[in-house]
Computed example of a mutant assay.
Amino acid sequence: MTGTPEDEVLHRFESGVSWITLNRPEAMNAVTWDQRERVIGLLAEASADPDVRAVVITATGKGFCAGADLRGAPAAPAERVVGDVARMIRLGAQRLITAVLDCEKPVIAAVNGTAAGIGAHLALACDLIIAAEPARFIEVFVRRGLVPDGGGAYLLPRLVGPQKAKELMFFGDAVPAAEAERLGLVNKVVPAEALEETAREWAERLAQGPTRALALTKQLVNASLDGDRATALAAEATAQELNMTTADANEGVASFVERRTPKYLGR
């Protein structure tokens, strides 16, 4: 039985942190069309809401996200024409990943279990990844005779290099959490029972930081591998110019001069 999007993607706001939780544990949180749209919407709301200063994406049950569940998607046309598949990918999986990459707040993935296919890419698109010890990452596409979608061939080489990325995508082997940490896919591995608390500690620490400076830093880092040095330095100078108009930048400088702990407001 299918629940509402609000049931299948839980949302709560605590201490400046927007918690987005996939909630279809019986399906290993394979993401439906409705879930995807709700996650995209919540990320857009997080960007626009000055009270939201960090985001956590996690899931219930034993799976983080087992990939796409197309059963809830709009029916495919009776006769497929050239462009239909590209359009579906562009408006579907790619929009989800782009929503994470473009979110103006830092996004943490708290990966509780298996992250496969688009589920793996949802985690890899996040700014920081904390994985529970039972978690696994699987580039499952090759097992189905498919090409990776959701930006996988863009994200993975930037984390592990092209040769390792091709190995993971060509063979589709499961990567345990400890190996994922060694490869640089995740930032930290913790016991399953410590996952939520660790994510909360990191998220609340980010939520107390200079939110606009973090947003600009995220943009610079995400763009750094796509352009040349001159472009990167020009973007850096522009980011500095913008950031110095914020209250938090002024507070940071003042607190340094006055030798006190800064109190950032996210503005």
Rank of each mutant, 00 (worst) to 15 (best):
Gly3Ile: 03
Gly3Thr: 09
Thr4Trp: 08
Glu6Lys: 12
His11Leu: 12
Phe13Met: 11
Ser15Gln: 12
Gly16Pro: 05
Trp19Asp: 01
Leu22Trp: 15
Arg24Met: 05
Glu26Met: 00
Ala27Ser: 15
Arg36Leu: 14
Gly41Val: 07
Leu42Gln: 04
Leu43Lys: 06
Ala44Asp: 12
Ser47Val: 03
Ser47Phe: 05
Ser47Glu: 01
Val52Pro: 02
Val55Thr: 04
Thr58Pro: 01
Gly61Thr: 05
Gly61Phe: 06
Gly61Pro: 02
Gly67Pro: 01
Gly72Trp: 02
Ala73Val: 03
Pro74Leu: 03
Ala75Met: 13
Ala75Asp: 13
Glu79Asp: 14
Val81Phe: 10
Val85Asp: 11
Ala86Phe: 06
Ala86Pro: 00
Ile89Lys: 12
Gln94Phe: 14
Ile97Gln: 07
Thr98Arg: 15
Ala99Trp: 02
Asp102Glu: 14
Glu104Gly: 13
Pro106Ala: 06
Ala109Gly: 07
Asn112Leu: 07
Thr114His: 12
Gly117His: 08
His121Asp: 15
Ala125Asp: 07
Ile130Arg: 01
Ala131Leu: 12
Ala135Asp: 04
Ala135Thr: 03
Arg136Glu: 15
Phe137Leu: 11
Val142Gln: 14
Leu146Gly: 10
Pro148His: 05
Gly151Thr: 08
Gly161Asn: 08
Gln163His: 14
Ala165Ser: 15
Phe171Ala: 11
Val175Phe: 07
Val175Lys: 06
Val175Cys: 12
Ala180His: 06
Glu181Asp: 02
Leu185Ser: 04
Lys188Trp: 06
Glu204Cys: 05
Leu206His: 04
Leu214Asp: 09
Leu214Thr: 05
Thr217Asn: 12
Gln219Trp: 08
Val221Asn: 09
Leu225Glu: 13
Asp228Ala: 11
Arg229Gly: 00
Met244Arg: 15
Thr245Cys: 00
Thr246Met: 03
Asp248Gly: 01
Asp248Cys: 04
Asp248Ala: 05
Asn250Met: 11
Asn250Cys: 09
Glu251Trp: 03
Ala254Asn: 08
Lys263Asp: 08
Tyr264Lys: 00
